[in-house]
Write a protein that binds this DNA or RNA. Structure first.
Lengths: 295, 295
DNA sequence: TCTATTAATGAGTAAAATTCATCGAACAAT
DNA sequence: ATTGTTCGATGAATTTTACTCATTAATAGA
């Protein structure tokens, strides 16, 4: 029968390249691994790998098992850690997923007091997901998802925690600097700076440019918020960011916030969770901190 | 270390109720299971269950492991079956998820020729999912999802396969029977029959009633399509179904289809798949059959 | 061609899982 | 209460499995 330790071997060989090194990693002999997989191959009736020169190469079936290993092993490992946490009582690891680049700064403010309050709870923040944040939540890679678009799915809860307005940031020298608000069509002559994510996930397009049938002169992507604002400051483009974030940076550099449209673009950050699962106290506390962070 | 067989034990005990019966199921002795879990408990340092009277009751930690078991064991099992399929060549199991109740009839028409073409490929159709169809796809419980709302997520592909119009079905005696189309407000005096799923997933509400700010007199849910149409036929209510489905049943009973709104409600059925994964030939063939089913 | 490195193999050994026999607790029927 | 039955726990014996050691064969680089 396919066992956890078979998955460990396949993964280790994939990581280390050779059986011998994989054996070292697992604190076993090369022989042990060889025997183990040999037996599994006989039971399943498939070859999992072949000798390619002196090394091993995974077969089609082997790759399937490797993909299984990469999916299942982290879950085994996490379950074991969870058990340790239960033993230790008020301990744990909170795996937070982020689907909202600028929220990072906000999250730090929430996490800081949390870490003080629960010195034995570790926080792990992740941003890249194979199947998106929702997929990560559903496959138990994270316990909590910070996202601006709550895709309601069976078995998931979303808690609104933070309202904010999305505004256009411009340099003080910019022609919009003294405006109260701008219309979508006015962006036609502007260079827009955004995070490097799909356009369909950018609020400035979804809620402002696209509905108005408008467009921008140029669209450039920048990963880092600080650099993005430096670019704005240098009048090399405009960006759309949460108002509170702009307010913070205004102390450091002379930038201006301009409302998007007459009524502004209003958004909300949600915390997504798997429902019907008993949540540890500290998780509830983090949600509480997040909710009250705006006040 | 937490092993697959521990998960098997926890699951079996949960299913069977007693250790003894679980042991029978696993072709082991009661003693073996007892020893096994005892050892695991010592390693992890947690109690997984306690004696409650003569039976066992899972502890908090035990429940966590049970949830892990229910998630991981099906994946182990499926991987093993997949290996068998690879040995046998053009064999396999296609696990299809359905998120669209009336599409069942359509799917049968696609699956029938498929089963003839690939006599060694089994088809399994599932309808209930803990985390919705999307969750099932992401956690490898199904390989393919039939759905009318393609929730685009990283790592997933959706292929449109079938356009149709959603229409209102009424009895020939009904006051709408001779109308070309109806407006949402006209439903205020009607009893609406739908499948028993959340209102937010019912097209008739999403695309017709709710946007118009209208409502119905009464809303009743019925699981079975045939019974639903019998009710319509008996003039006990009206229902919203795909036009092609109504056309089929019109041969058996005197019912009428009425367009929803001036332009009608137009929908499309999609097939959702995990992308970036090598797909077997027969899967591609099923998609092809689905695409050409409309002609 | 020689050497270093790799995986495979067979035999022996150590370790682990399983059974067997037995016990005590819980429960139902008397 | 008393008894018989059913359930899980336990310790010792046994079987099964996993692992190591020593060796071989193959490959690649010097």
């Amino acid at each position: 029968m396919l066992e956890r330790h078979h998955l460990e071997i396949i993964r280790a060989v994939d990581q280390q390249g050779t059986l011998t090194e994989a054996a070292n990693l697992l604190c076993l002999t090369q022989s042990a691994l060889s025997h183990s997989i040999k037996k599994l191959e006989q039971q399943l009736g498939v070859q999992l790998w072949q000798k390619r020169g002196r090394n091993l190469k995974l077969s089609e079936s082997g790759l399937r098992i490797l993909s299984l290993a990469n999916r299942l092993l982290p879950q085994f490992e996490h379950a074991e850690l969870e058990m340790q946490d239960i033993v230790a009582g008020q301990k744990g690891t909170l795996r937070i997923g982020m689907e909202c680049s600028p929220c990072f700064q906000w999250l730090l403010k929430v996490v800081a007091p949390f870490l003080k309050q629960y010195p034995d709870v570790d926080v792990d923040i992740r941003k890249e997901f194979q199947f998106g944040g929702l997929g990560a939540l559903l496959s138990y890679d994270i316990d909590l998802l910070i996202t601006p678009d709550p895709l309601h799915k069976q078995g998931l809860d979303y808690i609104p925690v933070f309202d904010y307005e999305q505004v256009l940031v411009v340099s003080e020298q910019h022609r919009f600097a003294d405006k109260n608000c701008i219309s979508a069509s006015e962006l036609a002559e502007e260079t827009l700076l955004t995070y490097p994510i799909e356009i369909s996930r950018l609020d400035i397009f979804n809620e402002f440019i696209t509905p108005a049938g408008a467009c921008v002169k140029k669209h450039k992507t920048i990963e880092n918020t600080e650099i993005m604002l430096q670019m704005v400051n240098a009048n090399r483009g405009v960006a759309a960011l949460p108002a509170w974030l702009v307010a913070e940076f205004q102390q450091q550099m002379p930038i201006k916030a301009v409302r998007l449209g007459k009524n502004g673009v209003h958004k909300c950050i949600y915390i997504g969770l798997r429902s019907a699962e008993q949540r540890p106290v500290y998780l509830e506390q983090l949600i509480h901190l997040a909710k009250t962070s705006g006040q």
